[in-house]
């Protein structure tokens, strides 16, 4: 797998892969895709893709508000940065 592709998918995945790790990761991905390639040999023409083990349909929830929920304090308790009930991040530039 080319380094450029690894760089691209690492960025799409938002993982800051250091240049020094690129070659090693590319090699590992190569061996994983060699394993994955075995599947390509299976004839699958006309086979309906299976998305899910259950042949069920999506249940629907009545449009009602919940009676109780964790407090906002509890929901924000693990936030790396929060103030005034907001999660804070470095400035979002549009």
């Amino acid at each position: 797998m080319e380094a450029e592709i690894v760089r691209r998918i690492a960025h799409l995945s938002r993982i800051a892969l250091p240049e020094s790790e690129l070659a090693q990761v590319a090699g590992q991905l190569d061996s994983i895709f060699a394993l994955v390639a075995q599947m390509q040999a299976v004839p699958t023409e006309g086979i309906e893709p299976m998305a899910h083990p259950l042949d069920l349909q999506q249940p629907l929830r009545a449009d009602q508000l919940r009676s109780e929920t964790p407090s906002r304090e509890e929901l924000l308790a693990s936030a790396p940065r929060a103030e005034d009930g907001l999660f804070l991040v470095p400035k979002v530039i549009e």
Partner: peptide, 30 residues
């Protein structure tokens, strides 16, 4: 099952599902 009302205090209408807490799952509103 959080409220959709406009104009509440920040994050007052949130829960593990709409905050994408680990393990939370969606159920569709009829």
């Amino acid at each position: 099952a959080c409220s959709t009302a406009f104009g509440a205090e920040p994050n007052a209408h949130t829960c593990p599902v709409c905050l994408a807490m680990p393990g939370s799952l969606p159920v569709l509103n009829a």
